[in-house]
Computed example of a mutant assay.
Amino acid sequence: MPGLMQDKVAIVSGAGQVGGLGHESALILAREGATVVISARSPDGLAESAASIEAAGGKVLAVRTDVADPAQCERLVRSTIAEFGRIDCLVNNAFNASPRGLLAEADLDAWRGVFEVNFWGSARLCQLVLPQMKAQRSGSIVNVLAHIIFKPQRIPPTGMFAYACSKSALYTLTQGLALEVAEYGIRVNAHVPGYMDGPSVRSSFERLEREGKGSWATEEQAVLEMIPQRRIPTTAECAKSVLFFASDELSSVVTGQALLVNGGEALH
């Protein structure tokens, strides 16, 4: 039986960490029949991610890409079209969460690096895939946001001010672009994860423990108390929502929407 993404071609940025959301999104799309084009800055991480997808029976092309570099973004999209002749889905997952800090003490020039990846990189890739999607009169763009934009009370204690602002800008882009391209059969939506049991959260817990700011068990318990389901969703679970948005069969009339995937921690 054909998969939900059979014969489709999907680009997934920020997919260079096995077990991360980008990798898991590419993996589930590949398992549903898509050819996936994955990108990341780290050549080693990208190779490991591609090997994992291939080992699962998926078709994958790895293109090393720093989405903050316009030329590299162009190469990613150009390579996809040259190799496969179409683009059916773009998942903008690449992100930069540093530096942290509050506005009063911030080096605003340092914020530019966050926006270059989270907003400009995503906007640029959206712009680059549009001509091909318009020609096909079909396509799905999935922008990965962050639940902190719906929980601004978390900004001061986490210091994720630049990150939250960049993701809020991407949310506005998602809604505006959805309306701009709807007549071409292109859907644009936002996947909004919260805490995920994956490499990023685990490394965060490890960092806090190393810095003497809390034990792994204490930090994990604090997170669990914020989540009504009392468990941290896995990246593989969260990636299923990316598949929902990517699939024409599942979300053919869904556009301009943000889906929070966080066990009930934040509501919208």
Results as ranks from 00 to 15, higher is better:
residue 1 M to E: 13
residue 15 A to L: 06
residue 20 G to K: 00
residue 20 G to Y: 01
residue 22 G to T: 12
residue 23 H to G: 12
residue 24 E to W: 10
residue 30 A to P: 11
residue 32 E to C: 05
residue 33 G to W: 07
residue 34 A to F: 11
residue 35 T to N: 01
residue 35 T to V: 14
residue 39 S to E: 11
residue 41 R to P: 12
residue 42 S to Q: 09
residue 44 D to R: 14
residue 45 G to W: 11
residue 47 A to L: 12
residue 50 A to W: 10
residue 53 I to F: 09
residue 55 A to M: 06
residue 56 A to R: 11
residue 58 G to T: 07
residue 58 G to V: 13
residue 58 G to F: 04
residue 59 K to T: 15
residue 61 L to M: 13
residue 62 A to F: 10
residue 65 T to C: 14
residue 65 T to W: 03
residue 66 D to L: 11
residue 71 A to E: 14
residue 72 Q to P: 10
residue 74 E to K: 04
residue 75 R to H: 10
residue 76 L to T: 01
residue 76 L to R: 03
residue 83 E to T: 14
residue 84 F to Q: 09
residue 84 F to C: 08
residue 88 D to Y: 04
residue 89 C to I: 06
residue 93 N to V: 07
residue 94 A to F: 05
residue 100 R to F: 12
residue 101 G to Y: 10
residue 103 L to A: 15
residue 103 L to E: 03
residue 104 A to S: 08
residue 105 E to P: 05
residue 107 D to E: 11
residue 110 A to G: 02
residue 112 R to K: 09
residue 114 V to A: 04
residue 118 N to K: 00
residue 118 N to V: 01
residue 118 N to P: 02
residue 119 F to M: 02
residue 120 W to F: 14
residue 131 P to N: 07
residue 134 K to R: 15
residue 134 K to C: 07
residue 135 A to S: 09
residue 135 A to D: 06
residue 138 S to M: 01
residue 138 S to A: 11
residue 138 S to V: 05
residue 140 S to T: 08
residue 141 I to Y: 01
residue 142 V to E: 01
residue 145 L to T: 03
residue 147 H to Y: 13
residue 147 H to N: 14
residue 148 I to E: 00
residue 151 K to S: 15
residue 153 Q to L: 08
residue 154 R to S: 15
residue 154 R to T: 15
residue 154 R to M: 15
residue 155 I to W: 06
residue 156 P to Y: 12
residue 156 P to E: 13
residue 156 P to Q: 14
residue 159 G to S: 10
residue 160 M to L: 15
residue 162 A to S: 09
residue 163 Y to F: 11
residue 166 S to I: 02
residue 168 S to P: 00
residue 168 S to D: 04
residue 168 S to E: 06
residue 168 S to Q: 06
residue 171 Y to A: 07
residue 171 Y to C: 01
residue 173 L to A: 02
residue 178 A to D: 00
residue 185 G to D: 08
residue 185 G to R: 01
residue 186 I to L: 05
residue 187 R to C: 09
residue 188 V to T: 01
residue 189 N to F: 04
residue 189 N to P: 10
residue 195 Y to T: 09
residue 197 D to H: 12
residue 198 G to W: 01
residue 198 G to M: 09
residue 201 V to E: 02
residue 201 V to G: 00
residue 204 S to C: 06
residue 204 S to G: 15
residue 207 R to Q: 14
residue 210 R to L: 15
residue 212 G to F: 09
residue 213 K to A: 13
residue 213 K to N: 11
residue 214 G to H: 08
residue 214 G to I: 08
residue 221 Q to H: 12
residue 225 E to R: 15
residue 226 M to R: 15
residue 227 I to N: 14
residue 232 I to Y: 09
residue 242 V to S: 04
residue 244 F to R: 06
residue 245 F to T: 04
residue 245 F to M: 03
residue 246 A to M: 11
residue 248 D to V: 03
residue 248 D to F: 00
residue 250 L to M: 12
residue 250 L to N: 00
residue 251 S to I: 09
residue 253 V to R: 12
residue 253 V to G: 06
residue 254 V to P: 06
residue 255 T to F: 07
residue 256 G to V: 03
residue 257 Q to L: 02
residue 257 Q to H: 11
residue 257 Q to D: 10
residue 258 A to P: 08
residue 260 L to I: 05
residue 261 V to M: 14
residue 263 G to W: 05
residue 266 A to R: 03
residue 267 L to F: 12
residue 267 L to W: 04
residue 267 L to E: 10
residue 268 H to R: 04
